[in-house]
Design a protein around this nucleic acid. Structure first.
Length: 354
DNA sequence: TAGGCCATCTGGTCCT
DNA sequence: AGGACCAGATGGCCTA
């Protein structure tokens, strides 16, 4: 099924050029395609193969040559076509094209992996981070924008990073589940009125509230607090003017894929100290990059990535989301608590200040 | 089953 | 010629 014409003029030379791609594409171009992926693309391949095999390569070459002889409407020879004469698509050219295409595919994959790594790094410095509860790409970007915006406001107007306004800024334009996630991670306490309602509803303070010993937690009865994650201590430290370095490894941008790591300075106050260091474990993507078979990568992705936008649910007997954001029902897996709690806790203990 | 999200392939365009 | 970047297409997985 060709949904897109080959080339602007739709001529067949490029179609010809794709001949023979099944052998390479279908059988692991770079040796990193999982069987699943092979099967997946095999379907696509199948469709194209159909259109390709209808015209064997020899036929295609002939057709292309015929194409070069343009015949006018009245049968007379039309003026010669301008521009560079099309080269004949020989077997050798086809092979070169295929090889180029395979290389380009690999580069593109690598590029996208680099992009995803960068996104992962971005996720890690967001106010709510969890390895298992990843924000989607678009939500990550939106939250990042909001985060910068909100921090700017903190700097410029002295707004408290613990205020409702701060959280509202963070959540502007985010989906409901993500908003709830952020609010939950920030441990924002609901307004007294709502709090009372929630106490009625949820059985009083403490339901889904503070995690014992969490230095940054404070009771928030209406919130999906840990096990919903929490605001990183280092974030607060920065917001409160903390400047001391916490991390041992100041290079947060190590990226094992093709994209060179960003070496530039982090812009204060966004150099979220501690975050980088404490969240520096390689992501599944990174640890499997360069290039272990995609089998594991894809399998991991399929089995372990959870996105807030698709994990809404109810918290048994507990809060139903942050009241600021109309509290859509939302549930995070328990391990979120450890993903986000532990680093904060570590930072706090390292600092000895909280 | 629809919709969201994703990875991958692909061709086009621009640049070196 | 080849690489980087981009956007469209496609199909898989997951959840409501």
């Amino acid at each position: 099924m060709m949904t897109k014409p080959f080339g602007k003029s739709g001529d067949v030379s490029e179609l010809v050029s794709s001949l023979g791609w099944l052998e390479e594409d279908g059988s692991s171009q770079d040796g990193d395609e999982s069987p699943e992926m092979r099967g997946r693309h095999g379907l696509t391949v199948g469709g194209r193969i159909h259109s390709c095999t209808e015209l064997g390569s020899e036929d295609m070459e002939e057709e292309e040559e015929e194409d070069e002889e343009e015949i006018g409407p009245n049968g007379e020879n039309a003026p010669k076509r301008r521009g560079p004469k099309k080269k004949k698509m020989t077997k050798a050219r086809q092979e070169r094209f295929r090889a180029r295409r395979v290389k380009a595919n690999a580069r593109e994959r690598s590029r996208m992996h680099g992009l995803n790594d960068a996104l992962d790094n971005l996720r890690r410095v967001m106010p709510c981070y969890s390895k298992t509860q990843k924000l989607s790409k678009i939500e990550t970007l939106r939250l990042a924008r909001n985060y910068i915006w909100a921090l700017s406001e903190v700097l410029e107007s002295g707004q408290s990073p613990e205020s409702h306004g701060f959280v509202e800024m963070l959540c502007k334009g985010l989906s409901q589940p993500t908003s709830n996630l952020v609010a939950g991670c920030l441990q924002l306490g609901p307004s007294p009125m709502i709090l009372n309602k929630l106490e009625d509803k949820c059985g009083g303070p403490g339901v889904g509230g503070v995690v014992a010993g969490h230095p940054l937690s404070y009771p928030s009865p209406g919130l999906p607090s840990p096990p919903y994650g929490s605001l990183e201590a280092s974030h607060l430290l920065h917001m409160k003017g903390f400047k001391g370095p916490v991390y041992d490894n100041p290079s947060p941008n190590e990226c094992s894929s093709g994209t060179p790591p960003y070496d530039g300075p982090l812009t204060p106050p966004l150099s979220i100290s501690g975050n980088f260091a404490l969240k520096q474990e390689l992501s599944p993507h990174e640890s499997e990059r360069n290039y272990t078979p995609h089998t594991s990568h894809h399998a991991h992705y399929l089995s372990s990535h959870h996105y807030p936008t698709s994990t809404t649910g109810s918290l048994p007997g507990g809060p139903q989301g942050h009241p600021l954001f109309q509290a859509s029902r939302y549930e995070l897996p328990l391990d979120v608590a450890f993903d986000s709690f532990a680093p904060s806790h570590l930072v706090a203990s390292q600092m000895g200040t909280i």
